[in-house]
Amino acid sequence: MHSSYVAITTGYLPSGIAFGALASSLHVPYYFTAALSIFVYSGAVQSAFLGYWTIGIDPLSMVFTAFLLNLRHTFYGPHIEHQRPSLGFSDILSLSPLLTDETYAISVSRPELGKRGMQSLYIYAYLIWIGGTVVGNILLKSVPPDVIGALALALPALFLGLLVPRIEHSEGLIVAVVSGIIAVAGRFLGLSDIFIIVPILSGLLVGVLLVKKRSAKND
């Protein structure tokens, strides 16, 4: 349990700082940066907001981009619910606004984490993210941009740390390779971040086929 908090702190604080610093460097007023972290609470959507900020915000495009970026969340809640069928409607209502890539990843990697444990972890992650953004906004004036860039490494390292222990069999490795190749191709082709749903679904599709194949073999 303790390591979940360490993971959230080491993953979120640097990324929050990096986001706050980036927003500050783009002259986004501090109250908008804080409002984004408090009310939207999604690194991907917040980053897209900054992208639109620099080119001029078109409200419909912004909302549509956010919808596509958030599509991956569609699967997160059901996975947690499948692991924890005892979660009731009110629990979901309190947890879902604070569901992120990282809290989802830690929740499914730590099935022993109960309702209370999840609630406190989710609130902690939320506060750390907001705190990081505020600190980043202030720090930009005193910290070299290179250091802030180094902090952005925290998130890929966090997902690496969550991914590796899950690959325990060949099916998992195949899924990771398929998803990874498509994601890397998307990055190299310069496709926008909303493309992330494609490698996720492709990997899932391959995974479903592998699981069905194995089940058929066993029957």
Binding site: F75, F159, V175, V178, G180, P199, S202, L204
Partner: peptide, 23 residues
């Protein structure tokens, strides 16, 4: 089977998130 499919989803999502979070 369903548990395994969700497992595959997690692996696929973590991989894509790993790649996409590299700045």
């Amino acid at each position: 089977e369903v548990e395994k499919i969700f497992d595959m989803l997690a692996i696929s999502a973590f991989t894509a998130l790993f790649v996409y979070n590299i700045q």
